[in-house]
Simulated scan of single mutants.
Amino acid sequence: MFYRCKSCGGNVTYNPDKKKMICESCGNEGEPELISQDKKHVCNNCGAEIEADQIDLSLKCPYCGTYVIFEDRMENEYEPNLVLPFAIDKHKALDLLKEKFAKQLFLPGNFCSSSTIESMEGLYVPFWMYDLHTHVHFEGEADKIRTWEEGDYDCTETSTYRIVRDFDVDYDKIPVDASKAMPDAMMDLVEPYKYEALGEFDAKFLSGFQAEIYDEDKDTLFPRAKKKADKYSQKYLGGYNVEYDAVRPTVNDKKSTEKASFYSFLPLWRYVYRYGGKNYEFYVNGQTGKAVGEAPTSLSKALVWFVAVFGSLFFTVEMLLYLLGVM
């Protein structure tokens, strides 16, 4: 399916800046016409057959440029629950990426240039989001240390206590990316999103962006959600024990159970920069603008800097030796 402008027949896509559907051709902001899918994986607009991977959900037709959504891939167990719409557009994402890495030494000159901007693409990444109930039970020994001076002596008094902590925590919407193609470490780094903007899924938000269905189910990913909950619980536990100088745990047990899970889509800009025969991938949170990645080093810039610095140093030493010889 795709969204067609009732005014000119152009493709209507979601605009993050205006937070509404806008025709790419005439700029009309009226309610678009939803054109349903007649044949599977055939562009509803131009009739061309679209080559797509099994996990593709929304993509741009390579023949006419229309954003096509495969509605048959949103059925049964693949019916989405939630979506968090894009809040920043491509140009804003690129500016944030430039700002993030602008101060890095020896950055290649064409990084984030106009000639490479086309490699930046907006993606809706599939996530499982979990509501968890966690019970924490902790036992251990803790020390409070007091020091003072008495005459010529430094005195130390250590008081040891037995401590027990037992509490419950409820977590809402812990996110875990459900795409094997996306690097888990980067997806964790680009968090957090402003989850209060999460809403019921509506396919219109996919128009203008690429999207994939999940290829890792919620049961497979539950351990990652539990690991995140354990990390948060440990921080709470640390707050309870902050009054002590040293803590030695004997029992540190955390048990999490799933209350609910939600198949969701979160927005992400991906920029692939090719340098020195290698691809460097960067990610920008499509809502908050947080940018992550590792930029390459321009060897030519580094060499010029090395020659300039050490050439100047060599010249200075030569002059000093000359002047000392004259004297």
Rank of each mutant, 00 (worst) to 15 (best):
F2V: 04
R4H: 04
N11L: 09
N15E: 14
S25A: 05
S25R: 01
P32C: 03
N45Y: 13
E51K: 01
E51F: 00
Q54L: 13
E71H: 05
D72F: 14
R73M: 06
E79G: 06
P80N: 10
K90R: 14
K98G: 08
A102S: 13
K103Y: 10
L105A: 14
L107F: 08
P108A: 03
I117P: 00
L123G: 01
Y130L: 08
E139K: 06
G140V: 00
G140D: 03
A142Y: 04
T147P: 00
G151Q: 02
Y153R: 15
E157C: 05
T158V: 14
I163N: 06
V164H: 12
R165E: 14
Y171Q: 06
D177L: 02
A178Q: 03
A185M: 06
Y195H: 00
A197S: 09
F201W: 10
L206S: 13
G208I: 00
Q210F: 14
I213S: 03
T220C: 05
P223T: 09
A225Q: 09
K235F: 13
G239Y: 11
N241H: 02
E243W: 12
V247M: 06
V247F: 04
T250D: 12
K255Y: 14
S256H: 07
T257E: 14
L268Q: 11
G277F: 11
G277N: 11
K278R: 10
V284G: 01
K301M: 05
K301Y: 05
L303E: 00
A308M: 12
A308S: 11
F310S: 07
S312K: 04
V317F: 03
Y322C: 02
L323E: 15
L323G: 00
L324F: 15
L324M: 15
G325C: 09
